[in-house]
Amino acid sequence: MRIDIDNSYLAKNPETKSVSFQDSENSKRLGDILDMIGRIAALDFTAVLNPSSKNDVVDAIAVGLNMLSEELNSNVVEKTKLDEVNCKLERFAHTTAHDLKSPLNSIVGLVTILEIALKPDKDSEVHSCLLKIRETTTQMKDLISGILDYSKIAGDEIQKEKIDLNEIIFEVSNLDGILSRAKIEIIDILPTILFNRASMVQVIRNLLDNAVKYSDKKMCLITVRVKEMCDHYQVSISDNGPGIALENQKRIFELFTKVNLSKPDSQGIGLATVRNILETEEEKIWVESSLGEGTVFTFTIKK
């Protein structure tokens, strides 16, 4: 909008000219501030506003935006560095775990040779020692497999395909022998989703396996439900197990966190892997549970 003012009026009313000049100056300052906000919103933190020497509220906003830009830039730089370190650590964990597999397999082989060669009596100390070595190596193999599963997610380029969740649940429960230890009830019609097949198998396997592993009932009951939301599905897997105390519910998704110490074969990797897989795909997982009333794990899958 442009307002033309008669010069004779300005001559008679010089304050009007001054106000008009101030208005245009303030408009420019506010325009600069708007530009700055736009650049911050676009994550461009290189712009710096030059406050006037008025030390007024507009200058204060300019100084505030400069500081906000500096803080955000510093946080972005720190996050980038942390991401790089995390990436290197995950690669290191993957390589180390991979390199440990070969000597561990050799130990297992040697134990078998020793068993054949020595043919120890079942009550002998040698037999007991060989059994302990076998158990320990099995635990170590599980740990290494867990670390490999957890760390390979970040490194791999994930190929997605259409997969039927019914098929995945059927496949996991049959191949892992879950059906011999639990009854699985699928309440709703499970959808076909776009996801990496191997990753979804890992998610389902870990959740079903956890329900069975920690069950305190004669028959573990697992129920699978699906809720259709506008842009995603919520898949819930619930069990009739002992439940998880409220204070432990946040910790269970952390790597190497073991909440139930009565299970020595637990490595504390499974749920961390599940969360890692889902979060890599920008999905969410959460848990709802009360002691003695079972547990419900719910995760989202985009349509």
């Binding site: 406050p51 509220v57 200058d59 204060a60 906003i61 100084v63 505030g64 500081m67 803080e71």
Partner: peptide, 15 residues
Amino acid sequence: RSPIAKIIGNFFLGA
């Protein structure tokens, strides 16, 4: 006691 000082102070405390 100035708008700029106020924003610097608040930033210092918050961030």
